[in-house]
Design a protein around this nucleic acid. Structure first.
Lengths: 191, 191
DNA sequence: CTTTTCGGCTATCAACCTTAGCCAGTTCCG
DNA sequence: CGGAACTGGCTAAGGTTGATAGCCGAAAAG
């Protein structure tokens, strides 16, 4: 019996692809083994459990997402950074819905979980982006949460197919980002 | 063996309570049967499958949510309606996270699925609420999607415990709603 | 070339969803 | 009131999936 040359990283990558194709909840050890050309128990030589696998997918997703946002906002500031970052995130989630679902479903196991660091990098990108708006420090946390809320909410609703009337979702997204941008730019104009 | 007096409605209600307590994904037929004082197969006399049960929970959730929002916005308009409706929705999701999770996880089975009608009632409430802002009809759909996106995003992030720094989530929520309200009220001031 | 390690495999178990079929309590009708 | 029909419990059993134990040949180490 020839060896398949599996590694934890490869198993994780292929499981992430599979999750993107069939949906994160539909991902099973059996299907993953089949795709890797291997029997189910063999996977446990590389991954300790399905929970462990899910955790690896989640960490991969958050890391990739953080990179995508960083790359998109690099060298931009204010409105440009918001627009570029928002579109980068939306694009990533549309391309990798299974990974993103894993990233939201999995909870960190402890305070030094690399998943926390990866998620923190995403937040840090949004935080840096917001600095371009010169927001009152006491309101930064609220603005950060709002940006995160909007992008997360839109991504999950869109991926779940919850925008029934398909009156151009792209237009709605752009409209929404412009709305937020305008609000952020005029934050200081009101008491 | 005495009868337990179960009905589809009762089974649904108890399963919804259980989902709120232990989380929707953790809901199993076995646990539900145990809580009802019955063996697992007995449930199938009232519900055809777990998918059917989930669908009933989802419909219950959307119906209750629509009622809560309607009650909260009744007799209010504009900012008042937005604030009251938003808080009603947030409160409902915090009180019934399992139900709400079911409502988002379950997909309608067909065009005449009652789940669609229930979800439609929620949307209709937001739509009615937005009329108070006198928004340009061409922008209504975008504003509606934004409101939905924000409330859904915030609710899911909060319930999932994803606001780490627990710097007053209540304050952030109010801040965010005020931000949106202000933007909606001044929509027409800018081409 | 021998020895050790490692990564496949088969066999097996436990949990969960589901169906089949039995049987007693309930209801309905003569 | 009494028997027939129905209803809603139950036990038994099967399929699927996650997970473990332990074997055994291939790869790596010396």
């Amino acid at each position: 019996m020839p060896r398949a040359g599996l590694t934890p990283a490869l198993v994780t990558e292929v499981s992430a692809e599979l999750a993107d194709e069939i949906g994160f909840p539909q991902l099973t050890m059996g299907l993953l083994a089949e795709r890797l050309g291997v029997k189910t128990p063999s996977l446990y030589k590389h991954v300790t459990s399905q929970a462990d696998l899910n955790h690896r997918i989640a960490t991969l997703a958050m890391t990739e997402l953080a990179d995508a946002i960083r790359d998109a906002t690099q060298g931009r500031a204010g409105s440009d950074a918001l627009i570029a970052g928002a579109h980068a995130m939306r694009l990533y989630v549309k391309k990798h819905p299974g990974r993103y679902a894993a990233g939201n479903a999995v909870k960190p196991t402890g305070p030094d979980d690399p998943l926390i660091a990866a998620a923190g990098r995403v937040l840090a990108s949004w935080s840096a982006m917001l600095h371009g708006y010169r927001i009152d420090p006491s309101q930064e946390i609220h603005a950060l949460r709002m940006v995160r809320t909007i992008l997360h909410g839109f991504a999950t609703l869109e991926v779940a197919g919850n925008f029934r009337i398909d009156a151009d979702v792209d237009v709605s997204f752009t409209w929404m980002i412009n709305f937020i941008d305008h609000g952020l730019r005029t934050l200081n104009d009101h008491h």
